[in-house]
Design a protein around this nucleic acid. Sequence first.
DNA 1: AATTTTTCTGTGTGCGCACACGGAAGATTT
DNA 2: AAATCTTCCGTGTGCGCACACAGAAAAATT
Lengths: 355, 355
Amino acid sequence: MPNLSSKVRIIDIARMADVSPGTVDRVLHNRGQVSEEKKTKILSIIEELHYQPNILARSLAMKKTFRFVSLLPEYKPGEYWEAPEKGINKARAEIRNYNVVVEKLYFNQFNAQSFVAASEKLLNSNPDAVMIAPTFRNEAILLMEKLHARNIPGVYIDSNAEDDHYLSYFGQHSYQSGYAAARLLENGLPKGSEILIIRMLRIAGTSNQTQRREEGFLAYFSDNGLKDKYHFNNIKLSADNDIENLREMEHIFRKSPHIRAAIMFNSRVYQLADILRKLKIEGVKLIGYDLSGGNVPALKDEIISLLIAQRPENQGYLGIMALCNSLVFNKEIKRINYMPIDILTKENIDYYINY
Amino acid sequence: MPNLSSKVRIIDIARMADVSPGTVDRVLHNRGQVSEEKKTKILSIIEELHYQPNILARSLAMKKTFRFVSLLPEYKPGEYWEAPEKGINKARAEIRNYNVVVEKLYFNQFNAQSFVAASEKLLNSNPDAVMIAPTFRNEAILLMEKLHARNIPGVYIDSNAEDDHYLSYFGQHSYQSGYAAARLLENGLPKGSEILIIRMLRIAGTSNQTQRREEGFLAYFSDNGLKDKYHFNNIKLSADNDIENLREMEHIFRKSPHIRAAIMFNSRVYQLADILRKLKIEGVKLIGYDLSGGNVPALKDEIISLLIAQRPENQGYLGIMALCNSLVFNKEIKRINYMPIDILTKENIDYYINY
DNA sequence: AATTTTTCTGTGTGCGCACACGGAAGATTT
DNA sequence: AAATCTTCCGTGTGCGCACACAGAAAAATT
């Protein structure tokens, strides 16, 4: 148990080691040269006294200011990516006095080229650390490689590119969140029911994350020998053509009136909820992801039964804080940080503030 | 939008107002006297420039050290109260450099007299701020009154004494968490099932919190017209006599073999889980609270179906941080802070780390 | 042995703030 | 008008650290 109460200063160590404060400073920062003899002596005293530098004084004295840059998808108010941004702002205010400024860059999440362009900009600005949402996996890996070559640490949030060069990852375990969703969906569902799996057509292809969730979802049923107990029905909806979607769904439900459950693996569930509301279809257990858009109202209206969330705000906050902890405070950073898989219902949604 | 980037110092303000830095200092701290004319001039400049003091420099310069004291139930390893303590330690490490020390006092949660004795000790030590678990409501209110008379701020965690003198509260909305539990228990439960409600006999009487949870639980059924759809069976178990409890439960299940669900409103569910395991009773949906003791293993073994948690670690952390934010950083503190009602299953428990 | 080069080491200054102190200006009393 | 008290105000010092700089010691070169 380290001594947290009594204060040990650099000057104390210097006195004990019979050297000047500057020398201690040098061994602490690997600056200049210090004779091997003094070095070991100083280090042993530091160890013995559990010396911990006063971060406040350090930041106050330090000339260098750190520039962190985030690279996230642009968004409209209420959309998913608003949440991580809020977390960034929170972190920014918290570490402002430690000489770190946080800047933001954005890309279009449906356009890989915009990611590449923003990457270019990012690199040219020569930041001290970066936080990236690797929506475009290959492009993100390329960027991270370049950053690594320049010794610029980077963290991923939301999804993990799983390359070798990132400092840390904050995001969900997509597979497991699908698995958890399956269990919740299946719970209390009569055997023989039909389950509707809805995918969204996406210009940039299905996202990695969505796919993993679906894998986990299906794995639950096969792992537990439930695959034959239910009928699975796959359907694809368009991202923007609401009228077409409505027609499609009406068709599906006329053909299969025994659908008792439905799931979507992204945050657009509220669109489906709208359709169900319009078609006056009831008794369908609907599960989706995230609190963005109209999801919360639909949950409260009991059209959506459950939402699964992953604290996107905290992801942004923790990503920035990890950079700060690593660069400014020289702390060790855990590399993979899976966020909790939060289960939200009408009854607990109002208290879901991420303290 | 305040200017977060450019630094404004006291000396800058002084120059602009054509006074000495000491004068600015005086109006910032209401120290000494300053002529009304200069005062307003300085204040308007502060306003205009969005001056925010550098907390780091302030703490570095400040002579005063703050003493925060927590007053929580004593506990054995693995018990509920270990969690808030962890949060306290986290906060302590974080604010150490801001000249605040955090001390801990304990009481026996089954003995009101021990709370009073600890209160005495607490008051005599003359702390700068306190955090209290008001397990004994009346005694806690009395203590908070005395603290208030001495101008010592105090926060409650875990449960709320709901008096007039506390600074802030961090804890669950007990009623609502019972309500949420009811919904989860009822979901998928065949109508006509028998539901077992288990209470623990407690020397010090039923705790306020437990009672509220039960109220919320029952309210769900009456609110939704489900009261007559199920049979409710109440049973009391002893806190320590396991053998007697086993016999009792065996009796109950022999008499009522149609029990399909059971709930306990405290963290001792694992005791019931043990009994069900011993009696080889299956097909009972069991819900309980908190992650302490053997609850997590029982959840993973699927004897417990769901656990409801309320981030006790964060409660301790946030309670201390609230004191710090108020006293040291002069921030506004939200008075009532209900913690999220977290729903935990076998599938998401492994990712439940409170980031 | 005298020099240059390299390695090592101590001192001084300032980051932005709190706080003590001493002195000036004004108000009150003698 | 002189003395005392009160209100007001400016300056100086230190919190613990980083960093620049100059100078000493040691090593390498001439």
